[in-house]
Design a protein around this nucleic acid. Structure first.
Lengths: 345, 345
DNA sequence: TCTTAGCACTCTCGAGGGGAGAGTGCTAAG
DNA sequence: CTTAGCACTCTCCCCTCGAGAGTGCTAAGA
């Protein structure tokens, strides 16, 4: 589907239709366009242009005597060649950056903040996944004594994730011994992943062996659980959309169920896109059933060595694309900076 | 408001009305009761009894020719003296315990699992807060080198929370030095809180001083941020309730907004209750505006030394209280066990 | 005294029927 | 090429009305 060429006046009118529809959620009438956008034309002329835009597939009619509504192609055209600069206002950028700096420097909090900020900026629902590579790489291991044989394993992974796990040692150990053990294991397994650590288990004995086993399993589980570690926010914004709030409640429920089900949300991620790119799926372009009436705007962020995460927005087709793209781009950049900082690049 | 005494037949009828209303969400007719519960009575007799229950304030009428609906007092009576044993089935308990054991032993994951399990068991929305004392107490500190002057501070707190923060040291340090520093700081500040560590800052120099400052601030922030660390799940279940789905969409939105706003959710927590108790607010009994048509079922869990968290369910007045209470009690007990394990008791 | 059949009465809910209003498409004139 | 004018269409809201469900009351029966 290639995008048609349009005369400047038609571009102007299409832009106005989409702007109007985005704010009112009502089919746009020719008269309203003339009135509200001060076009130097009569409504009849506008009607002729609208009819032509409809022939080109950019607009539709809900029924004969209703105003015009953009089609998916219409939105696409808008995004490709009519949209204003989507950058956030400098003040907004500053405010958001400031919030991220003020947040405790903790990955989970950053992710939560990213999700809530995206939701607030776009007034839609947001999705954020943690940055992670395809395999988890160990950076540091620490063994914290809890009570005689019981210890807490704390593992810092490449990318800044921190994992913890309780473990009951076969033999009791003194805090100093545990400390030394943590140090030795860090030296030994630094840079290792689930597989390499599993290989090294054979060479170890006693507590070191036990911990290495636990570590290997933990890293494997981390990779498996990664898919489930998804942050979302702004479901209330979906409920506020007139097209969803007034429509079929079962459909609405399905949408929310999809967002809440962390195993399914990951189906939405545009795994193919590159850094800095923005992926946009309009309406039926995304394949997930309950979201056929929704649009997705996703960005990717991440560090150098294949460590990537996604930030995205889910809203009605009628969403403010410029704003969403601006928000996704900006938050994505912010998250990239944070990941890079933790990585040490 | 004291609860009235009822004859056995009235108790039977009230129980049937509530059971029926919970499943159908429709006003209950006298005829339907006779038909569906095999009462050895005519509908006229049941009508007389219903009228009396209404006089006692346990039931109401939406309008003259409609069936009966329980009042808040009716639900309260049901919970106090009509409800069956709320314990979950042994198989369910086993399944859930198993899931918790299988989960990675990670506090955040446990909390998430608790929220989703509660939501699934009760088919309502759930809220879970992490276990935390009124002040954060340090248990272990670790300094992980990232890149020359940049380090990652990892602090393990009493109760199993793990906090992390990036820090740029004034002077570069070797990994071994950092390791020793972590060890020294752990020995020094173990058992300390934000205030005691702040006091000790004056005595320290260089990196130790910098880290102590960061630690103190981190602990203070942790206490402040605790209120924001809330897990919820099952919003889709709220949307599935006919009383909310078909009603005012703005009202529905307010409810979801309340759940999503972590600063406000904490207003729902029954700070006064004891361990093992279950707090139940029916309808208008809870003070939070958008939830006047909802009931809350909350439990408290926690360790010995004032470290407590909350698990709860939010649903329509018409919720299955036995099931909700059973779920809250069971998950609360599970969480208590987990916290105790991390504490080392 | 308790139970129940019978019946009048009330209220909701859904279907059907205009009428107003908004908006279009077309035609013909400027 | 633009635009005024007009017939036509479709939605939406309001009204009505009948069917159905359910109650409250009364009077008869056990």
């Amino acid at each position: 589907m290639t995008l048609p060429d349009l005369a400047e006046r038609q571009r102007e009118i299409l832009r106005a239709v989409i702007r109007e529809f985005i704010t009112t959620a009502q089919p746009v009438a020719s008269g309203a366009l003339v009135r509200r956008y001060g076009l130097p034309l009569s409504s009849a002329t506008v009607r002729n242009e609208l009819a032509e835009l409809e022939d080109l597939g950019l607009l539709t009619h809900p029924h004969t005597s209703a105003g015009r509504v953009p089609t998916d192609l219409g939105y696409r055209f808008f995004i490709e060649s009519l949209m204003p600069d989507p950058s956030l206002m400098p003040e907004e950028q500053l405010t958001v950056s400031h919030q991220f700096q003020q947040a405790q420097r903790d990955t989970a909090q950053w992710l939560r903040l990213a999700a809530s900020t995206l939701a607030r900026l776009s007034a839609e629902a947001s999705i954020v996944t943690p940055a992670a590579g395809t395999t988890s790489v160990l950076k540091h291991i620490d063994v914290v004594p809890i009570q005689d044989r019981r210890v807490l394993l704390v593992a810092v992974l490449e990318g800044g994730t921190v994992r913890q796990q309780l473990l009951d040692l076969e033999q009791p150990a003194l805090p100093d011994e545990l400390r030394a053990l943590g140090q030795r294991l860090t030296d030994l397994h630094h840079g290792g992943n689930s597989a390499t650590i599993a290989n090294a288990v054979a060479d170890a004995r006693g507590a070191a062996r036990q911990i290495a086993q636990a570590l290997s399993r933990m890293l494997a589980e981390t990779e498996a659980a990664r898919a489930l570690d998804v942050y979302y926010d702004g479901i209330q914004n979906i409920l506020a959309q007139p097209e969803f709030g007034l429509g079929d409640p079962a459909r609405l429920r399905e949408m929310v169920a999809l967002l809440e089900d962390r195993t399914r949300v990951t189906e939405l991620l545009p795994l193919g896109i590159g850094d800095g790119e923005v992926y946009i799926a309009i309406g039926a372009e995304n394949r997930v059933e309950p979201l056929l009436d929704c649009s997705l705007v996703f960005g990717r962020y991440g560090g150098s060595n294949g460590v990537v995460g996604y930030v995205g927005i889910v809203g009605p087709r009628r969403m403010d694309y410029a704003r969403s793209i601006g928000a996704v781009t900006f938050i994505g950049r912010l998250m990239t900076d944070l990941v890079r900082a933790v990585e040490g690049n």
